[in-house]
Computed example of a mutant assay.
Amino acid sequence: MSWASRTSGKGKTMKPLSVQALEWIGKDWSVGSKTREGHLQHTKDFANHVSQRFAMEDIQNLKPKHVESYVQHMKDEKLDNGTMCNRMAAVRTLVNAIGKGNIVARDNKAYGIARGSRQKPIIADQSRVDGIRQVLADRANARDRVAMMCHAAAELREAFGLRPQESLLSSKLVETPKGIALRVEGAKGGRPRDLRIGNESQLRAVQIVAQVSQALGSGTARIIPPEMSLGQAYNAQRTLWRELGGTKNSAANMHVSRHTTAQVMNAQGYSKGEIMAWLGHGEDRSPFCYIPR
C-alpha cells in the first residue's frame, strides 16, 4: 500500500507511520551516532510492518503485540541474530522516544534472540597506548588543535572506557546521588549514561576536557574545534591515532581501552551487569567479548 497521507476516522490527516516514527526519533536521538543510517532504515522497516500488518494510524498506539509480530516477521525472513538485534535496538530507540519503553523486553533473549560475540577480548599493548597518549599530549602542549582534541578524547577513553565517538561528545558533569558524574553522550541509540568520577585519572581526564574546550573556543563545552563538524573530528581522530601506531593489529586501537576497562572492573569484583552498564550496552549482553574466559 503506497500513500503520502491518509485520513483517520476522526477526519484528521495522518502522516505515514514511517514518517511519524522518523520524526519521533529525530527529536530524541543523538544525531552523531555512526549507526544512524542503519537505525533510520530499521525504524522505517518496523513502522512499515506495523502499518501493513495492523493498519495502525498513530505510532503512539504501539503495543507489545506489534513488537512481537515484528520479531516473528524477522524470524520468518530467516534473518541472523545479529541483524535482528540491530533492528531491535532501533525499535527500542523508537518506543523510548514515544514514552513507551516498557512495551519492549529489555533482553532480546525474551524473544528467542541472542547475539553471538562479535569481537574477541583484546589484551592491550599498554606501553604502545601510553606512548601514543604522550605524543598527543606533547603536540597538544604545542597548541596543535587536532592533537588537543585527540589528547582530551584519549584521556577520557583511558579513564572511562568510552567509545571513540563518546569521547568526542562527552563533557558535561552532573550531580547524582552517588556523587559527580560524567554524562556520556553520543552512544549507540542515543542512550546517555552517567559515570561517577571515582578516581584521580577520571578527575584528571574531565579537567583536561574542560581546559581543551576552553582553549579551542568551543561554545558547546565539547572538545571538537568549532571549525570542525563531528564527522570531520571523528575522521581526524581516527586518522591521527592510526598514524601514531594505534591499530587493532598492534592491540592499541581506540577501542582497546574499553577492553582494558572491563578487565580491570572484573578484577575489582564488579558484576557482569555493572560492567556492561558502565560500557553503555543496553542489552544484557555477556562481557566475555571484553574479558578473557
Rank of each mutant, 00 (worst) to 15 (best):
S171Q: 12
V129E: 03
G190L: 08
Q134P: 00
L195W: 07
R128S: 13
S167V: 05
Q202E: 13
P121Y: 12
A187R: 05
S201P: 00
L162N: 09
L203F: 14
E200H: 12
A152V: 03
G189Q: 08
K178V: 10
K188M: 08
K120R: 13
K188A: 06
L168Q: 06
A147T: 07
L173F: 00
G161Q: 03
V135Y: 02
L173Q: 10
I122R: 15
I122Y: 11
A159L: 03
V209H: 01
L173Y: 00
I197S: 04
D194P: 02
G161N: 03
E175Y: 12
G179V: 09
L173E: 05
V129K: 02
E185V: 14
R193A: 09
L182H: 05
A181D: 04
A159Q: 02
E155K: 12
K178S: 15
L136Q: 04
K188Q: 04
E175W: 07
K178H: 13
Q165L: 12
S167F: 01
H151D: 13
N199R: 01
I132M: 09
V184T: 00
R143N: 15
V209G: 01
R191W: 15
R133K: 14
P177D: 13
A142H: 11
Q202K: 00
I180C: 08
I122D: 06
R133M: 13
R163H: 07
E185C: 08
L168M: 07
R145L: 13
A124F: 06
P177A: 10
D125G: 13
V184D: 03
R128I: 15
P164W: 00
G131F: 06
K178M: 13
R196C: 14
A205V: 05
T176Y: 02
E155Y: 11
P164F: 01
P177C: 09
R145Q: 15
I197F: 11
V206M: 02
D138P: 00
L195M: 13
A181P: 00
A142T: 10
H151A: 09
A154E: 04
D138L: 15
P164Y: 02
G186D: 08
V184M: 05
P164D: 08
R143W: 06
K188C: 04
A154W: 02
L169V: 09
Q202P: 00
Q165C: 05
G189M: 11
G179E: 07
E175P: 10
H151M: 08
L195Y: 05
L169P: 06
N199K: 00
R133G: 15
R139K: 14
G190I: 11
A153Q: 03
R143V: 12
M148D: 08
V174L: 08
L182K: 00
Q126T: 15
V184F: 06
G161T: 12
A137S: 12
